[in-house]
Design a protein around this nucleic acid. Structure first.
Lengths: 100, 100
DNA sequence: ATAATACTTGGCTATATTGCCAAATAACAA
DNA sequence: TTGTTATTTGGCAATATAGCCAAGTATTAT
């Protein structure tokens, strides 16, 4: 890894790292179905409001989700739907199926 | 996230988490080109032998790479080439390009 | 047997992450 | 204004991760 490509790997790793948490992954898959406010995600995830909020902030900083405040609610949406396409591959890893 | 789907998200997150480190990501992309022994990766990465070895063990535990000891060398190969397919998407996230 | 190379493991410290609680902010209702 | 709901932020303790050095194992060479 050369000095010049280092920041590139850092940036890509940051995105993957953001996805590398069960709660965040769950939320990403949930947001793939449509926008959700934080309160909905809190119910679905079953964790503290602050915990969910921090996970969402992290996903936002990674460039994966977007937020939109309307009234007192903040709605999050998935910014990059292509992320879901490779879940099949990730699942192939865990089921040890051969992957194309 | 229901009780029953929790282990599934844990498993998927584990794979993504394994990819979420610049050195490991670099090695995965390097292994995509063909098998490499640990010593080659050590040179390419520029870290301690033990550090590289531990990263490889982690990738192996995640089911991403395989090892094959031949003589005194241990050769690693990428087990799931499909992982590379979504690098385009990850790059789209970091460059903020629209993603299909 | 001794030495050298390739690699893994143990141990340690520094640093990062997680998740909770409590407090702060913001919008809206009474 | 006061209260209530939605959300974020600060702070903290527990836990996990990273990376180095040193020591251990395994294989091959002398």
């Amino acid at each position: 890894m050369t000095e010049s490509e280092k920041p590139f790997f850092d940036a890509k790793a940051k995105v993957l790292k953001a996805l590398g948490h069960p709660t965040r992954l769950f939320m990403v898959e949930e947001l793939a179905r449509g926008e959700r406010c934080v309160c909905e995600l809190v119910k679905l995830v079953g964790a503290d409001f602050s915990t969910v909020s921090k996970h969402l902030t992290l996903l936002k900083n990674a460039g994966i989700v977007q937020d939109d405040k309307r009234g007192q609610m903040v709605y999050y949406t998935l910014k990059v739907p292509c992320i879901l396409r490779f879940m099949d591959c990730i699942e192939a890893v865990i089921t040890r199926e051969p992957c194309k």
